[in-house]
Design a protein around this nucleic acid. Sequence first.
DNA 1: GTGTTTCGAAACTCAAGCGTATCGAATACG
DNA 2: CGTATTCGATACGCTTGAGTTTCGAAACAC
Lengths: 208, 208
Amino acid sequence: MTTTDEFQAAGAQTPRPAGRPRSARAEKAIIDATLDLVGESIGLSELSIEAIAARAGVGKTTIYRRWSNKEDLLVDALSTLKTPLPPLAGVSVRDDLIVYARVLLRDACDARNRCVMNIAMNEAERHPRLVERIHRATIEPRRAAIAALLRRGVATGELRADLDVPIAMANLVGTVMWYVRTEGGGEAAGSSDLAERIVDHLLAGLGA
Amino acid sequence: MTTTDEFQAAGAQTPRPAGRPRSARAEKAIIDATLDLVGESIGLSELSIEAIAARAGVGKTTIYRRWSNKEDLLVDALSTLKTPLPPLAGVSVRDDLIVYARVLLRDACDARNRCVMNIAMNEAERHPRLVERIHRATIEPRRAAIAALLRRGVATGELRADLDVPIAMANLVGTVMWYVRTEGGGEAAGSSDLAERIVDHLLAGLGA
DNA sequence: GTGTTTCGAAACTCAAGCGTATCGAATACG
DNA sequence: CGTATTCGATACGCTTGAGTTTCGAAACAC
């Protein structure tokens, strides 16, 4: 830390409170350390503020001055993860399914995003506000997007007319998630045509 | 507790040690309480011996006299869950796939079994011995059985000749798991033809 | 310079939970 | 009966971590 990284947006109507300004660098370090540790230790109860402070090279005071407790910090940290859904080319449903499958694959292979899913699925009754926020920010938009894509496929005749959309969604998402979990997570991302193979497999079906 | 439930197998070569015998009822109560709490609190670190003792109506002494630590208790408790794989009728691959899908559905809806999966997937580096044992006792046999069934289908021509077995396994297992997680867990088990619909969906594929 | 606020570090209080030890009562054997 | 062991209950020492407080130093405004 040779240079000073303190600053404030200093809007005209916020006349810059007196005293030393809060370090933006410290804030980013705290968020990063939190996400790192969330990615390593899966349970939220294993995640300690002291470990976050140590990892971030920051005093606990600096954390508690910004967030009043662990859950508030987690809400802010996890909300920085929501990668935007990629735009769809919109040419063929198959191509768009592959685009989404690639996103699912990438997220499923990333430790941070994987833990968001674990938290959303496992800690619903222990951290309802946190899980609710994750659902609204990340999960629900993706569900809606995939459902809309599947319905588009039914409408255009590219998919079966009697398609069961909930089952088809479980097909796509569940296959990707389970594949990554069982067949080594890291290597799966490398083979770039995996998403393509999974989608074609689903479209064609298992039957002869 | 009006009657006495103490006993010992008392084989001829084990001459029944002196003193009050250990209570088989207490042992069962401990295992049951452990599985109940595992089914409620998903993380192993949230699971406390003291809560197990309280739930089982048992002193901590009675637990520590039988298991030296929490992990040993968990290994024994979880190993009582392994429901045997059902025999296959062996007539058609579709029927056998439905049999397995039903087993997967039932297990995925049961809180206890669901937590075994969570532990196996999430706590690999924290409890390697426990996870290893779960894998050998429960997961690996099922993986092998499903893989064998799929290969049989390829051999008999009921399934595509170019079937990618790992992807097909992720299809079946992932679809069931994900469906239960997203579309209400409890109700899914009720509709008895869900397994059938999922399998037929997979066999036919999504394409028109 | 003075005043105000934040900084990292360290100490603190408080609660939870592990694993152990001790207690009187209960249950077996002989 | 005496002896041995387990029973549930309780207390203990110990560690971990949450959240607070205090401290001297640093970073700003004036």
